[in-house]
């Protein structure tokens, strides 16, 4: 919008809002480096006397964050592979083939975006528990191979933008639809599949309720779940709590800075075409 926003008022407003947004992170980092005594001083000390990594070392000592990391990364990677395979495959059917029932299934798929997780949570739990999959990663990993509405929709929108001439030319050459999918569409869809990848990684890393329901053994805990029990145990030691939280946040920040483009493009695409 052309508010002639170059004027200093809106820039000043932006700067103030940004400071408010950033301040919790400053507080997080500052507290991660403080001693328990510095935290408890009133009136408060805004900065630690010295920046040492002792809280991080202690957090790793009192809870197996290394193991939590391995569990989270394993789960995130399996989900990532599952979602990329399934959404790229399923979206091909919805975007590039015409057949009876396509519209109906697509509508049903989109309708699942409106189903609250709370409604399917209990029956799914019963289902997995009956199959003996409680306290395994299966309930948290296997569903990724069947796609989800958000990712399939995102990839389908991208596929729709690829001219049909490619498919027709390949069909004349005698290629099958599977070959078209593998050799023509997938290579062109790399950017959108990267978006699916980063979203999957993020939602998997940040998921709390799934691991809370299915993982009850200490050795299986993910970072989010491990952090939650850590918060429960060390709620009075805010410096440790903040160091542990920083450890859990760091991978997301790293992923964001390396894959920023795919985050922004992916969000933009679903939001606008939705």
């Amino acid at each position: 919008m052309q508010l002639r926003v170059k004027n200093s008022v809106s820039l000043a407003l932006l700067v103030i809002l940004s400071i408010i947004m950033v301040f919790p992170f400053v507080w997080l980092i500052r507290s991660s480096f403080m001693t328990q005594r510095e935290i408890m001083t009133i009136p408060i000390k805004w900065l630690p006397a010295k920046f040492g990594f002792i809280n991080f070392i202690n957090a790793f000592k009192v809870a197996p964050f290394g193991l939590y990391f391995l569990n989270s990364i394993l789960l995130a990677m399996v989900n990532l592979v599952g979602q990329i395979l399934s959404s790229s495959f399923i979206a091909f059917g919805f975007a590039r083939l015409r057949f009876r029932g396509r519209g109906l299934w697509f509508a049903l798929l989109l309708s699942t975006m409106m189903i609250p997780y709370t409604v399917v949570m209990i029956p799914q739990f019963i289902f997995w528990k009956t199959l003996g999959a409680y306290n395994t990663f299966i309930p948290l990993a296997l569903p990724a191979f069947f796609g989800n509405a958000f990712n399939i929709f995102l990839v389908r929108q991208f596929y729709m933008g690829i001219p049909k001439d490619y498919d027709e030319a390949a069909l004349v050459e005698g290629a099958s639809y599977f070959l078209i999918y593998r050799r023509i569409i997938i290579p062109m869809a790399k950017p959108v599949l990267c978006s699916v990848g980063v979203f999957t990684f993020m939602s998997c890393w940040n998921d709390f309720i799934g691991p809370l329901l299915y993982l009850d053994k200490p050795g299986l805990k993910t970072v989010s779940l491990g952090l939650q029990s850590f918060i429960g145990q060390y709620s009075t030691q805010m410096n440790l709590m903040m160091a542990a939280s920083s450890i859990a946040i760091l991978p997301m920040i790293v992923v964001f800075f390396f894959a920023q483009r795919y985050f922004i493009e992916g969000i933009t695409f679903t939001g606008l075409k939705g």
Binding site: I90, G93, R98, G147, F178
Partner: peptide, 8 residues
């Protein structure tokens, strides 16, 4: 079409 959307 149904092969592709079967997993879905």
């Amino acid at each position: 079409g149904y092969v592709f959307i079967a997993p879905c």
